[in-house]
Design a binder for these strands. Structure first.
Length: 294
DNA sequence: AGTTGGACCTGACTGC
DNA sequence: TGCAGTCAGGTCCAAC
């Protein structure tokens, strides 16, 4: 499930591979994968003939600025993959969009579950493009301050895990990195946002960018059942550094206790360490000698 | 208005 | 071996 680190890895590679290239032909074959367009033909017409003038990212979305004031937005969804390959390479059954470049290579979008999409939006100003403007702050930008996080959490009452994955609240964090950040900050995933202490907010504010930066350094996460691959078809290696995500029953790297999996809303689950991330905020108390340890 | 939960989608996996 | 059922989850949208 590509999240910010995976999208950033792809962005960096695309910048090297396709910046300045012209899209000489566009061929979308799956309407669902270009569902913001009236048809594949419409998408093709919007993309063809344009030159890629910038390669950016907003949250989990890879954003290619095209000349003529257009913006190509690629959202990877669950299983979306962006590849740059020689145009002679055969397309697979999951190749939904093929952009032929002016150097005999293709930029291809492949997606098994079709949750992802490609879209060409009018305009080049991200603030004017609704799809991009609705995102919350970038967790790696200076705008993501402790005070911003504190105030934002105070105003809400949802479970912290759900809110961290809300793209309008914070851009780019999904299931993997919310689990990992909460573990680092020692916060139970079901804690209500407006009940977090100042110390917990501080720890969370440090944990989120830290885990994202480390994951970017590793090229992202290719989890057990994940199809994530970078532009060159290589997996990410942050999986080896995961503390809790998909580690149900295995030992917590901090305390050795067993990691638990907690089902949340439909099909979603949080992974956490019940010892390091207790559901109840335990009041710190001057325990009498021999205080019990469960 | 904020929060919750179903639907979309398909390959891998589980159980009979 | 085969088939039905279950799971995974980013995002949108409807319903509390």
């Amino acid at each position: 499930m590509p999240e910010l680190p995976e999208a950033e890895t792809i962005r960096r590679q695309l910048e090297r591979e396709v910046l300045g290239r012209r899209i000489v032909g566009a061929r979308a074959v799956t309407p669902r994968s270009v569902r913001n367009h009236s048809s594949c033909r419409d998408f093709n017409a919007c993309a063809a003939g344009r030159t890629i003038t910038a390669v950016g990212r907003r949250g989990k979305a890879v954003v290619l600025t095209l000349d003529g004031s257009r913006t190509l937005i690629i959202r990877l969804g669950m299983t979306g993959v962006v590849r740059v390959v020689p145009s002679t390479e055969p397309r697979t059954k999951h190749t939904h969009v093929t952009l032929s470049l002016d150097d005999t290579r293709d930029l291809r979008f492949e997606d098994v579950r079709k949750f992802g999409e490609c879209r060409v939006a009018a305009g080049a100003d991200w603030g004017q493009i609704p799809d991009l403007a609705k995102y919350g702050p970038e967790p790696l930008s200076p705008r993501f301050t402790r005070e911003h996080l504190r105030d934002a959490l105070r105003r809400r009452s949802a479970k912290i895990k759900s809110l961290l994955m809300d793209q309008g609240f914070l851009a780019g964090v999904g299931n993997i990195y919310s689990d990992e950040a909460l573990w680092r900050a020692r916060i139970h995933p079901e804690r209500r946002t407006n009940t977090l202490s100042a110390q917990e907010v501080t720890r969370l504010h440090q944990a989120i960018p830290a885990v994202l930066r480390e994951a970017i350094r590793r090229g992202g996460t290719s989890a057990r059942d994940e199809t994530y691959r970078d532009v060159h078809g290589r997996p990410g290696y942050f999986r080896m550094d995961l503390a809790v995500y998909q580690r149900t029953g295995r030992p917590c790297p901090r305390c050795g206790g067993a990691i638990e999996r907690l089902p949340l809303a439909a099909g979603r689950a949080a992974h956490f360490c019940p010892r390091c991330q207790p559901a109840q905020v335990r009041r710190k108390r001057r325990a009498a000698a021999g205080g019990k340890k469960p």
